[in-house]
C-alpha cells in the first residue's frame, strides 16, 4: 500500500493525481513505538473479548468489531490536544479505548448493564464521554459527519484552538450530507479532519461497486478541501498524516480529508455471512498487512524490546480486558424504572 499522496489544496486542482508513495520513513522514539503497540493491542484484545461475549449471548443489539483497523485511531489520537473532539460511527469501541475511556464502562454497555457508559440503554453504537470529548458512537451512517462539522464550528466560534476528528466509512462517504458538510466546512474554514476509514466494504458492498470514483481522499476536491491517502495499516504513517492535517486545521486553514486505507478482518457485524469476499483475501491481509504485527517486527528488529517483554505487555492488557469482562457480567441490569428516564429534562 502507498504511504501517502496528496490531492486538492486550495490553489491546485485535485483531479487525476496519481497516488505516490513517499520514501522517507517517519521516525519515532522507543517510548512512542511501545505506546502505539500497547494501545493497538489493547483495542484488539478488547474486541476479541467482546466477540467472545457476543458468542456467549451476553451482548444484545449489534456489535461491530474494529479488529484490523487499530492503527488508524491510535495514530490519530497521538496528535491530539486535550480540547480536541472526536466523533465516529457504530464501529466505535476502538475509538473509545484510544481516547482512554474506561474499558469496564464500554464492555458493560455492550452487555446492557447499569455500569455501562449509557447505563446499558445505548449498547455498542451509542456511547459518549463528555470528559474525554468523545461525542459518540452513532448508528445512522453518514449522519455523524454533519455532527462533527458542528463540533468543528463550535471550536472555531469559541476560539478554543480545538479540532474535531470526524471518522466515517467508505460506505458513508456516499451519503449526501457528507458533501453538504464538506461545503460548509470549507466555506467557513472549520477545523475538522474528515477521516474516511476505507476498509474496502460497506456492509457487503465493495467500494468499487458503490463508488463512481474510488479515490475517496479526492472527494473534497470540488470544495477545495485537501485530501491525503494514507496507509491506515501503518500507525506511523497515520500519525505523520494526522499531525500535518491537525496542524493545518488548527492554524485556521480549514478542513482536511484523510482517506485511511485499512481493512476489517471480522464480519460487518457479528452476523455476517460474508458472501462478498474470499477467506483468502482476509488471510492475506492479516498475514501481510497487520498493523500490530508490523509494529512488533519493528520493535524486535530495532531491539527496543524482546519476546519476553512483548509477552509481558500482552499479559497486562489481558488482565485489563478480563477485568472489564468480569465487570460487564457482574454489573446489575438497569432497573425497569430506568425506562422512563432521560427522555426530556425531569421537572
Amino acid at each position: 500500500m502507498a504511504v501517502a499522496s496528496e490531492a486538492g489544496g486550495r490553489s491546485k486542482s485535485a483531479g487525476g493525481r496519481k497516488r505516490k508513495a513517499s520514501s522517507a520513513k517517519p521516525k519515532a522514539t522507543r517510548e512512542e513505538l511501545l505506546h502505539f503497540y500497547e494501545q493497538m493491542l489493547r483495542i484488539r484484545r478488547f474486541e476479541e473479548k467482546a466477540g467472545q461475549l457476543y458468542g456467549m449471548g451476553l451482548i444484545g443489539g449489534f456489535c461491530h468489531l474494529y479488529i484490523g483497523q487499530e492503527a488508524v485511531v491510535v495514530g490519530m489520537q497521538s496528535v491530539l490536544e486535550p480540547q480536541d473532539t472526536i466523533i465516529t460511527t457504530y464501529r466505535d469501541h476502538g475509538h473509545m479505548i484510544a481516547c482512554d475511556m474506561d474499558p469496564k464502562g464500554v464492555m458493560a454497555e455492550l452487555t446492557g448493564r447499569i455500569g455501562g457508559y449509557s447505563k446499558g440503554k445505548g449498547g455498542s453504537m451509542h456511547m459518549f464521554s463528555k470528559e474525554k470529548n468523545f461525542y459518540g458512537g452513532h448508528g445512522i451512517v453518514g449522519a455523524n459527519v454533519s455532527l462533527g462539522t458542528g463540533l468543528g464550528f463550535a471550536h472555531k466560534y469559541k476560539e478554543d484552538g480545538g479540532v474535531c476528528l470526524t471518522y466515517f466509512g467508505d460506505g458513508a462517504a456516499n451519503q449526501g450530507q457528507v458533501y453538504e458538510s464538506f461545503n460548509m466546512a470549507a466555506l467557513w474554514k472549520l477545523p475538522v479532519i474528515y477521516i474516511i476509514e476505507n476498509n474496502k466494504y460497506g456492509m457487503g458492498t465493495a467500494v468499487k461497486r458503490a463508488s463512481a470514483t474510488t479515490d475517496l481522499y479526492q472527494r473534497g476536491a470540488a470544495h477545495g478541501i485537501p485530501g491525503r491517502h494514507v496507509d491506515g495499516m501503518d500507525v506511523l504513517a497515520v500519525r505523520e498524516a494526522g499531525r500535518k492535517a491537525v496542524d493545518s486545521a488548527r492554524a485556521g486553514d480549514g478542513p482536511v480529508i484523510l482517506e485511511m486505507e485499512t481493512y476489517r478482518y471480522r464480519g460487518h457485524s457479528m452476523s455476517d455471512p460474508a458472501k462478498y469476499r474470499s477467506k483468502e483475501e482476509v488471510s492475506k491481509m492479516r498475514q501481510e498487512h497487520d498493523p500490530i504485527d508490523h509494529l512488533k517486527q519493528q520493535l524486535l528488529e530495532q531491539k527496543h524490546i524482546d519476546e519476553a517483554g512483548l509477552k509481558e505487555i500482552d499479559k497486562e492488557i489481558k488482565a485489563v480486558v478480563n477485568e472489564a469482562a468480569e465487570f460487564a457480567q457482574n454489573s446489575p441490569e438497569p432497573d425497569p424504572s430506568e425506562l422512563y428516564t432521560d427522555v426530556l429534562v425531569e421537572a
Binding site: 446492557g112 448493564r113 438497569p334 425497569p336
Partner: peptide
C-alpha cells in the same frame, strides 16, 4: 409502547 426511546436490550421486554 411507551413515550420513550426504545431501550436496549434488557429493558426491551418491558417496553
Amino acid at each position: 409502547g411507551h413515550d420513550i426511546v426504545m431501550p436496549l436490550p434488557r429493558l426491551e421486554d418491558q417496553y
